[in-house]
Design a protein around this nucleic acid. Structure first.
Lengths: 244, 244
DNA sequence: GCGTTTAAATTGTCAGACATTTAAATGTAA
DNA sequence: TTACATTTAAATGTCTGACAATTTAAACGC
């Protein structure tokens, strides 16, 4: 493994980067065991705590996993879809919340991406994904539902729509976009009237997907986007008026 | 800040998660200073190395940054677009390479997402992004170009197309999809004939975007997808035949 | 008033030790 | 021989204490 020049950056960051490059380049393959912490410390000529900090950096990115005990150690981790989802959602959510991304921009990106899945979803939807969409639509019509539950069900519906495309890479990419919108969506209070409208759009989408009508589904999605945008703008406008 | 129950997981992971939740929930805001390592160790009732491992986990995710010296410490980091790009690309690349994602599935996801940007790109393209696309097309026609440079230019062209949409969130989401394909694309050797064909598709796309013709651009993209798929399948087939 | 020096606070690194966990090796009895 | 219990070795997890390097602010001298 590569060494570190007289770089002045943190040693643990340099070591983590060296190991990360080995993994990215495929020179360390999945489930391969890294040398023990003591051996790594010896190799890089640093102390064990420094090596451990480097390994924790890699663990935080799900690049390695560790096991205690004899024949334990650090192993190259096969990045699973749930782990990848989680990291993507964390990154996307923070990017939106920390950079003052407007509701309009986030909304546009989200629905543009979602429309991209729709033709595939209309072509390949299964009874299973259709049933999930129908179930979420039914839940959204329940009177006692809290705003939080309504939002969660909304996410689940759109998630099912995306999953209908049957492309796990697409599902992964969309997860970040849809989930990251959640905090922004939570700012909107859904009146009974707006819920009714949204359920209407969802029903149109599910119907179109069931009938393999991609364009009708895309059209309904575009109208839902426009409607969501008006809801968001109303909230912003109301917030600009400090008068209650 | 929250404490840790009698959980048996790593203390550093628990502490990192507790701080991460504070940041995600907005209770720790951008540029806010965390307590010093000694204070955190005191608060969580662990030793300083354990706190440091937790902080390194957060630093690896660009959630915090650290500064030495008096009035230094750990600060909540504003996640920048380049940092978010980098993490997204790392995650996407590893997800594809470690899970045996087929060329077909990755290709489908990538072009589906890219087509989603096309209507916005055709609407909003600027002289600047058009010039970038033209420049990359010109470079791709140079005879002496290596396969690596051709691939890089291909990525730059598609990146310019995506950026034409003028939506930074969309650009961020697409970066992972496009860049993560790069290792798979590098397996394809581009003959003079295939390069000529690709330059032709790129020219059609640029022309359509310049004329604000979204559907023509999408059609050219779809044909490029089909052509890329045949190239990839030829490579796979040639690889299946061990005979040279 | 200004430049220099000093002090303090904080992260970065090290050394050594002990605790905990895990699986293999070993021993023991039915 | 087989099954079960014990021991052992290897590795990570955690702690203590110390020192180095860095950076800012305050003190100091002129």
């Amino acid at each position: 493994m590569k060494i570190d020049p007289d770089n002045k950056a943190d040693l643990s960051a340099q070591i983590a980067e060296a190991i990360r490059e080995e993994i990215m380049a495929g020179r360390l393959i999945v489930d391969e065991r890294l040398p023990s912490e003591a051996e790594l410390a010896d190799h890089f000529e640093v102390s064990r705590p420094t090596v451990r900090e480097a390994l924790k950096r890699l663990a935080a990115q799900s690049l390695i996993r560790t096991a205690r005990g004899a024949f334990g150690g650090a192993f190259v981790n096969r990045l699973s879809y749930p782990e990848a989802y989680g990291q993507h959602i964390t990154t996307s959510t923070l990017l939106l919340s920390m950079n003052g991304i407007s509701f309009d921009v986030a909304c546009e990106a989200r629905y543009a991406l979602e429309r991209a899945c729709t033709p595939l979803a209309a072509e390949r939807r299964t009874p299973d994904t259709l049933a999930t969409m129908r179930a979420e639509i039914h839940r959204q019509g329940q009177p006692g539902l809290t705003d939080e539950s309504f939002c969660a069900s909304d996410v689940a519906f759109h998630r099912a729509l995306v999953d209908s495309a049957g492309n796990p890479v697409l599902s992964y990419q969309l997860a970040g976009a849809v989930e990251a919108m959640q905090p922004l969506m939570n700012m909107i209070t859904f009146t009974a009237r707006s819920r009714e409208a949204i359920v209407g759009f969802h029903t149109r989408i599910a119907d179109a997907v069931e009938r393999h009508e991609a364009e009708a589904a895309q059209a309904a999605l575009s109208e839902l986007e426009a409607y969501t945008l008006t809801l968001g703008r109303d909230v912003m406008a109301a917030r600009a008026r400090p008068k209650g």
